[in-house]
Design a binder for these strands. Structure first.
Lengths: 248, 248
DNA sequence: CCTGCGCTTTGACGCAGATCAACCTGGCCG
DNA sequence: CGGCCAGGTTGATCTGCGTCAAAGCGCAGG
């Protein structure tokens, strides 16, 4: 997996993941060279914390491979996941010094980073970079607000279905695994992590996953490998109005 | 109240609310003149819907006076408020055509708007506008994620305390009503609207407000006027680690 | 002044999901 | 091969909040 990173060290960013590449899609030769200069890779092992909330964050970047989560924790230990970072997702807060959340690698993780200071300087002189980042941030804001509806108003079963729908859709669009309405993917999260995302306990997650299986909404091979025989059925279970929204 | 709007029709935006003014704070004469050209005001009555989710949205702007809410609704009527717009808050999605949420005026409302097309054109040629909007969007994203913790992991009592803390802080910073730890403000929301924000029912909201009153955390004059005798006590009730976060 | 109507409060009761506890399952390492 | 242990399942019980119902409060309009 790590040798994959070699292929990204090209000056045109041609191997870089979708969103990351989009940041510099309209850059010309000089700008690309500058991006190359400030670019580097970081690898993490499963379970490692990439950065702690409040720490100084001196880079922005995007996930190349692996999964990371954004989480918030209260003093008494209650935790809420506020974001799920899949390959191609952007990490970082241009213009901010501190990290706002804990970023934790849920699997082995490779990130492609830009040093923040020079990146911000580029932003100031290269309008389309700030514009692209604005679009990406608006996407994330939409996703966060979509999730507020899930957390505030959906039942446990609907929550599970919503999460499976998000992951299924992401997998389908990236790997185009989906054939017609059939979607197959591996859950990148433990039951506990799912619970932290959904504002539930891990027991409830386990029970509702079993229930969805019993009712034929999903099929399971092992604990993690999921087959959704009818994706629109899953969306219905999620309480969604016909495939609207639910982007991450 | 409406005659107030006259004072905003000045070419330097000097009367415009904080965040809105900040958008053009670094604009020079020509740019300000251009902004004036595409600027106009809209008024709404309490209860009126400013825009429906999915509708074409041909403006961006900010709240001058009054309160509006961003809400999402499921087919079966369950609704979740995903944002609260107080004076000076920005509304709109530069680069997007459709509205993502219902925007509803909770009180009489005045908004200062810019026509979107020309505003976006300015954004493309004026880097600091896109940068400012990026900062504002990052703020909103932080607030949304902070709220995900509230929705997912806090108890009803903590949720109420969190909401009062947000509104109290906003009021305190704008009107500087706060004297030491004492904060006084009017609730701009009905019990039902509070419930929709917090993912609760209006009965539970009512009960928990009463409980906080009984326990001396807040005092009530009438249904809406709130006095917080000890703001740090309120933050404690909200489960917050010592005045961190909780911006809207 | 009474009446009606939003908004709010309060009470009684039920249930979805939390909590506590026991057990299973599969992969890793000695 | 066997023991260990993280991750997962399942069951019994508890409880916070939702639901349903009734009544209070304040204000606008006749």
């Amino acid at each position: 997996m790590l040798q994959d990173t070699l292929s990204f060290a090209t000056p045109d960013c041609s191997g870089c993941p979708i969103r990351h590449r989009a940041v510099c899609a309209r850059c010309d030769g000089d700008e690309l060279a500058r991006l190359e200069e400030i670019k580097y890779y970081r690898s993490f092992e499963a379970g490692q914390t990439v950065i702690w909330s409040g720490d100084r964050m001196d880079f922005v970047g995007s996930v190349v491979s692996g999964i990371a989560t954004l989480t918030q924790t209260m003093e008494d230990g209650r935790t809420q996941m506020v974001g799920l970072l899949l390959p191609s997702d952007f990490v970082g807060r241009p213009g901010r010094d501190g990290a706002a959340y804990d970023v934790v690698a849920t699997s082995d993780l490779v990130m492609c980073c830009f040093r923040k200071k020079p990146f911000e300087q580029m932003m100031e002189t290269t309008p389309h970079i700030a514009q692209r980042l604005l679009q990406m941030t608006l996407d994330e804001l939409d996703a966060a607000r979509e999730w507020m509806l899930v957390l505030g108003r959906k039942t446990a079963r609907e929550k599970i279905a919503s999460l499976l729908a998000i992951i299924g859709r992401r997998n389908a669009s990236i790997q185009s695994v989906s054939v017609a309405d059939r979607v197959v993917f591996d859950l990148p999260l433990t039951r506990e992590a799912m619970a932290d995302y959904l504002g539930l306990t891990l027991e409830t997650v386990s029970r509702q996953v079993s229930a969805l299986k019993k009712d034929g909404v999903i099929e399971l091979q092992g604990k993690r490998h999921v087959t959704v025989p009818d994706f629109s059925r899953l969306l219905e279970e999620a309480g969604d109005d016909q495939d609207g929204g639910l982007l991450v």
